[in-house]
C-alpha cells in the first residue's frame, strides 16, 4: 500500500500525527509539500515592476525561490522525523498547489492524507479552502481528511430545519 501525506505550513503537525495513528504497518509512505509558485513570483516581479529601477545592485542576496525551497526541505525533513519514518520518500514540488498535489497522487497511490484547512467556526461547504476542495474532488485515490487539531464537537451541528423545509440543491 502506498500512502502520500500532504503537508502544509500551519497544519502539518496535526496531519502527520493523524496519519501516523492510521498508518497500516508495512505501508510505503511519501511526504509531499508544494510551494505555491505565485508567491515568490509576485514578490520577485514587484521588483521588476518598479519602472526604471531594474538595477543589479539591488537584487536581494537570496532569491525568493531559494528561501522557499530551503524552507520546504526543512519542513519535509521535520515531518519525516515527526512521523518516525526516516525511510519516507520526500516529494518537494512547486507550482499551482492543487494541481501539483493531484499530479503527485495520479499513479500508484492508494491513499492521500489531507488536513482540513478551514475555520472551525464556519463548518459547511466552505470549511475547506479552495486548494483542499479541489484535491478532495479530483484525487484519483482514497482521501483521508483529518482535523489538524481537535475535531469539533457534535454540538457544532446546527438545529434541524423546520418541518417541510428542503435543503437547497448543492451549488458547489
Amino acid at each position: 500500500m502506498r500512502i502520500v501525506i500532504w503537508v502544509v505550513e500551519g497544519t502539518w503537525q496535526g496531519c502527520v500525527d493523524a496519519a501516523s495513528r492510521s498508518l497500516p504497518s508495512g505501508a510505503q509512505v511519501a511526504l509531499l509539500h508544494v510551494t505555491p509558485s505565485d508567491v515568490a513570483e509576485v514578490a520577485g516581479a514587484a521588483t521588476t515592476g518598479l519602472l526604471g529601477r531594474a538595477f543589479a545592485g539591488r537584487r536581494p542576496a537570496r532569491s525568493f525561490r531559494d528561501v522557499a525551497d530551503a524552507a520546504a526541505s526543512e519542513l519535509l525533513a521535520d515531518a519525516a522525523a515527526r512521523l518516525g519514518r526516516q525511510d519516507a520518500e520526500l516529494l518537494r514540488r512547486r507550482g499551482r498547489v492543487e494541481r501539483e498535489v493531484i499530479r503527485a497522487v495520479a499513479e500508484n497511490v492508494d491513499l492521500l492524507v489531507v488536513a482540513r484547512d478551514g475555520d472551525h467556526s464556519r463548518l459547511g461547504p466552505h470549511s475547506l479552502g479552495p486548494a483542499t476542495r479541489f484535491v478532495v474532488d479530483h484525487a484519483p485515490c482514497a482521501v483521508l481528511l483529518v482535523w489538524p487539531d481537535q475535531p469539533p464537537g457534535i454540538e457544532s451541528i446546527p438545529p434541524p430545519p423546520p418541518p417541510g423545509h428542503h435543503l437547497p440543491p448543492d451549488r458547489d
Binding site: 505555491p36 508567491v39 514578490a43 537570496r62 525568493f64 528561501v67 530551503a70 524552507a71 519542513l75
Partner: peptide, 15 residues
C-alpha cells in the same frame, strides 16, 4: 524579502 524569510522561518503560509 525580510517578510518572506520571516514567514518561512515561522513556518506559516507566505501568501
Amino acid at each position: 524579502p525580510v517578510v518572506f524569510a520571516t514567514v518561512a522561518r515561522l513556518r506559516l503560509r507566505a501568501k
